[in-house]
Design a protein around this nucleic acid. Structure first.
Lengths: 368, 368
DNA sequence: GCTCCAGACTGAATCGATTCAAATGCGTCC
DNA sequence: GGACGCATTTGAATCGATTCAGTCTGGAGC
């Protein structure tokens, strides 16, 4: 007999903290822990009878596997990490993504952990941290770049991830994206149809992949409608709104000012409109603005804004679905989806707009 | 010799996955794991010499304790759970709280886990889940009620938590709150000074504690300034903005409409202003609105809004600080803080407002 | 009667950190 | 010289779930 420091645990029905463990169930059923463990995961070498019995008891006592135990033994954390940039003006955008992700993860054992970072330090840091310490089974990132170091890093290490936005690398990975190219193209066409001929684009940061999509779509629109561009490339949607407003006002006071603006984010539309009014121009008369929106707030204020909805809850759901798919070894082709802008919502004739809700269709088939 | 299935691990410098463990360091230093473990936490019975050596090696190899190991053995998760209601219009509010919390937690081993819930199901569910499964060391909740079942539950189980908002129970617990009573009182005074005499209040949901603070402050203001109230109690700040707008428009078209409104949230101010303009009234002339704001977006649009800043990042920091304090056993008195509204920012004379940044002082002393 | 085998089940090791109880080394004191 | 105390250090058990390598039972096959 090996000198036990204390007599072995009496195997009583429950440990002191009250939570049932495998041992509890083993004791109650008179089986061994191994059998219980295997019975709960429907292993083939356990008799159907035993499985039922074990599962019944487990349900009765409210058994839930101890996460630390599983994690220590298997390395599986049942956690997915949401990397989020904390220095942007996110405006409900984040909470919608979070909501979508958690919707998709409800009913699974997954927890969502937030890993905040600031662009002021190295964006690789949080990725490295999660991968190295294996603190999650997968990561969702946004602000994706054409050649994204994070994507390269995680791919090399075979660490599951999904990106909000696409890359331009020879790496095939799960992603979800909003089709900003179509958005910009349609926006230009819409402005052209309203007789606007001198258009500016308030684009995202040039380092991000969707900058390219948006500028390309914008250029295509210009070419198709024979309208001209008023360059407005020194300011981006993620900059502080005061800056955007000031630069916009500057633009509008210059000779040859635009009579139409395509705006890449709902938040910056506030700044645009503010600048327009500050310059004494009338939205919808002297100038039109087409913008993406994720809440109805902007349009509530200014019914004459032309808006296209971007559904971030959908994005959250799709990203979670893509990441889960990767973790479960599904083929990458199933894990890429593109959200097509539902269409441009033109301002209604009546001052009081009816609320317009748009379908957003996906190119990739949705299960169920 | 007990029949080992496989020869014992060669104790090689590192396990296959590359992460150093206590064993790795024990091997490198020639010490036992126990010594290494104790040396790393500065136990008094380890010689200074050994401590230095162990800590040096640990730093060199980039040792980080395995969270699952610690958690399994000690029950400490190093996780705090942020409960969040997913059916509100949160508008950047959430991301600011998150930012504040993560700011405070940076440099600690704590991770932030999100536990979303919908008010449509039982708000106790997520609390019970976290407490029962011990999936976090502490919880931060918001939407606090005067008699909050969650507070009672967690207190009974001695589970650490902090609330955003106060309670009215005979339970002393960590909290952070914004002084909505002072806010409302000052708002009324401000409106009275501008010659407004018929005031309405857009209050929060009556079940929440801060409904009382805000209505009391409002009532005090009324009494002090001899202005009258126009009842507007069938609508709350957290309702869908379309509803708020519609009800406000209704109110404004009624005889004896208010000439001043105090608004309890930045988001709903959008709806108020929209309704005002829709009714053909001019903000700042026919009617004044005092509102809380957490971003500058509202005021950017309507410089004539009168605003008071509410800093949610500060709230996040304070909540995290309070919860950490509780977990570390500090006295509750240190863990309660009230954010005093910095003052009412009246609209500037010039059309283009300078950005006004307000101090927010705390009644409780801040450490450091 | 014997072996062999499949089916059902289980003991014991394992993941990494903590901690109890004990061991070791060494200098002191009577 | 031997017992004692002090400062250090360490083996082994422990947390809960998983899994390798068995064991045990009963029936089939020769």
């Amino acid at each position: 007999m090996k000198g036990k420091a204390r007599p072995p645990d009496g195997n009583g029905p429950r440990p002191p903290d009250g939570r049932p463990t495998l041992k509890t169930i083993a004791f109650m059923t008179g089986l061994g822990v191994t059998t219980v463990s295997r019975a709960l995961k429907n292993a083939p070498d356990i008799s159907a009878d035993t499985k039922h019995r074990v599962q019944l008891v487990a349900r009765q006592v409210g058994y839930r596997p101890n996460r630390a135990g599983v994690r220590l033994r298997t390395g599986k954390t049942n956690v997915i990490s949401l990397l989020l940039n904390t220095d942007e003006q996110l405006m409900g955008f984040i909470s919608d993504i979070i909501y979508g992700v958690s919707q998709e993860l409800a009913g699974t054992p997954y927890h969502i952990i937030l890993t905040p970072y600031s662009a002021r330090s190295d964006p690789m840091d949080p990725v490295r941290y999660v991968v190295e310490t294996q603190s999650a089974d997968g990561i969702i990132i946004s602000r994706t770049e054409p050649h994204d170091a994070r994507v390269k890093y995680m791919t090399e290490r075979q660490f599951p991830f999904a990106t909000h936005g696409r890359t331009n690398m020879d790496i095939d990975h799960p992603w979800h994206d909003f089709d900003n190219q179509i958005f910009a193209r349609n926006a230009v066409r819409c402005l052209a149809e309203r007789g606007r001929s001198r258009l500016a684009l308030l684009a995202p940061e040039p380092t991000l992949t969707y900058y390219r999509h948006m500028t390309e779509g914008f250029a295509e629109g210009l070419a198709a409608s024979a309208v001209t561009e008023v360059p407005f490339r020194s300011v981006w949607v993620d900059q502080p709104i005061d800056d955007i407003r000031d630069r916009t006002a500057e633009l509008l006071r210059r000779a040859g000012r635009p009579d139409g603006i395509v705006c890449g984010s709902g938040t910056s539309a506030f700044a645009l409109v503010s600048a327009i009014e500050q310059c004494g121009l009338a939205l919808g008369e002297d100038i039109d603005v087409v913008t993406k929106q994720s809440t109805k707030l902007v349009q509530m204020f200014r019914p004459r804004l032309i808006v296209v909805n971007e559904d971030f809850r959908l994005a959250g759901r799709e990203l979670a679905r893509a990441l889960m798919g990767r973790i479960n070894g599904r083929p990458t082709a199933e894990l890429q989806s593109l959200s097509i802008p539902g269409g441009v919502v033109e301002p209604p004739e009546v001052p009081r707009p009816a609320t317009v809700s748009l379908d957003t269709r996906l190119t990739a088939a949705m299960p169920k």
